[in-house]
Nucleic acid binder design. Structure first.
Lengths: 206, 206
DNA sequence: TAGGCAACCTAACGTTCGTTAGCAAATTAA
DNA sequence: TTAATTTGCTAACGAACGTTAGGTTGCCTA
């Protein structure tokens, strides 16, 4: 029951693999053509430019991340619940398409304007959804964080390395990965949590 | 009291800035020459090849990270202390040279063999130092982690995004950043730590 | 005052780059 | 059966690439 891919989709998918492993700039249209078994010029029957491929990959992944977190946020609940679900949604998207995620996370800077700017504002919008969860949690006493934005970026960068090692056939399921990450980020490594006054008091001296 | 840079060091430093902002492949020798105010061919009076610059940046940073963590590990102590100091050492190196750190972390894949392989084994050796701390901590009950390697990679990727935003003139000092990260990673976001049986029991069902 | 050397130049090399033009074969739709 | 669409080809374009060769300048040292 393999989905039939249009030639354009095949090109996009093959390019994604190459962009991940060699980087966008270091991947030539002749590299891509070779991987597809055709001539470089033939690719232009299906796409307008090399950058169009990058654009499609980046903004398709952006949509997927937004769809996933919007669905996760629809359920409401405590900030802890919401963060758990947001992390899970993010991990699901990451693991479902590791190559495209890697391109989305690392090759976006090769987008030219105005796509480059659009990407950045989408990213900020996405991070804002996480900031809102953290803000709610710190407001009602669920979370204790040094800085809202700092916390969000630490969380997201803690998630975004998954594409470097995740393999679908591995022993960790996406659900298990998400669960492990949630526990690590919510409760930390320490077996026993120190009194919060001890933990954070020295920050005041800086 | 500005240090006098040799022309070779100026080239390396300018290249590092360009490599960070445009990527190694997308930075041409003519870009670099233009930034230096000279002709591209003139660069070759000082270096052997474009890749030599990348090699020097990558392996110099590798040395800095190892020196820092070796010094941090020399003091011993509990696993919690060691992890705190290792995180601090890592953050100090990252913040001291954000451009070179970014190149070190993102452009190493453009190294050709055997440098590429050397880089990877150095990276594994570095991660092994962190794994040893985590292993000690889980062994004596200080830490509770789902998986040793998983934990180390989450920690390191949680640190390695700093170069994307850190500015020396900003309000957060490297020491404060390291402290915040240590607290987040050791104690998590949650204000109250749940009973560990509750927290981790559901992992057994996966 | 001569020699050496660091620093940079112009000119050019062979290669690769993204892309276009124009055409041919195969497949699909009417 | 014909027309349109899809998919691919060869040939080539101008530009940019990393790099080399060979020469000039100016400073420092012996």
């Amino acid at each position: 029951m393999e989905a039939v891919l249009s030639r354009k989709e095949q090109i996009e998918r093959t390019a994604t693999v190459l962009f991940k492993s060699k980087g966008y700039s270091a991947t030539s249209m002749r590299d891509l053509a070779n991987a597809l078994g055709i001539e470089a010029a033939s690719i232009y029957s299906h796409i307008k430019s090399k950058e169009e491929i990058l654009q499609r990959v980046c903004f398709r992944m952006a949509s997927e991340f937004f769809e996933a977190i919007d669905a996760a946020e629809a359920d409401g609940g405590t900030a802890t619940d919401r963060l758990r679900r947001a992390i899970s949604a993010h991990v699901q998207v990451l693991t479902k398409n590791t190559e495209a995620s890697a391109v989305f996370l690392h090759e976006w800077r090769h987008l030219s304007e105005p796509m480059h700017g659009t990407y950045l504002s989408l990213r900020d919008k996405y991070e804002a959804l996480f900031r809102d969860i953290i803000r709610t949690g710190t407001g009602n006493g669920e979370f204790t964080v040094p800085d809202e934005k700092f916390a969000v970026l630490t969380i997201l960068s803690g998630l975004n390395w998954i594409h470097t090692w995740y393999k679908p056939e591995g022993k960790m399921t996406p659900a298990a990965i998400a669960s492990n990450l949630s526990e690590m980020l919510l409760n930390g490594l320490s077996t026993k949590k120190q009194a919060l006054e001890d933990t954070y008091s020295h920050l005041n001296t800086i």
